[in-house]
Amino acid sequence: METLILISCLVICYYTGSTIEKKHYENIKAREAALSKTLCMTYGKAFSRSTKIKNSYLVSSSVVIGCDYFKAFLAYFRNLFGGNISAYESVLDRGKREAILRMKEQASARKAHAIINTKIETVMLDPLGSKEHPKVCVTAYGTAIEYNNLD
């Protein structure tokens, strides 16, 4: 009976998890294409003496993404044998891209032209040793800049 519950849980979570992931990736790709004009740079010093910049301000965003039961189960076995845990790689990738997108959306809503000195920080929200499935919090922040007149 217990094995049956476990298997049905795994099957259900496999379906919900992969459907959510697929939808999320479609959403991310569409928004990334729409926001491709807002550039994201990881350096910032080069801009500090620029006189062409009219306005600058901090933009930041975070996103918390959970792994479903099926992924956690897969990862458990991966941990025994070693190697890439691709189930978690996609979760972290989605988190990072989503956080960057939200930051870009904030910047473009305020008519910024680019984001400089982008930093990304990832934190596991469950302290080590807790029994819960991992939840990951990704924070992206940077300085949005607005040029005087970009023609």
């Binding site: 979570c13 959510i20 996103v63 918390v64 479903d68 989503e98």
Partner: peptide, 16 residues
Amino acid sequence: KNFFGGEIEGYTELMD
């Protein structure tokens, strides 16, 4: 939410 997968909006809001 964490069991079925996807973004956990409640925690995103908390972090924001």
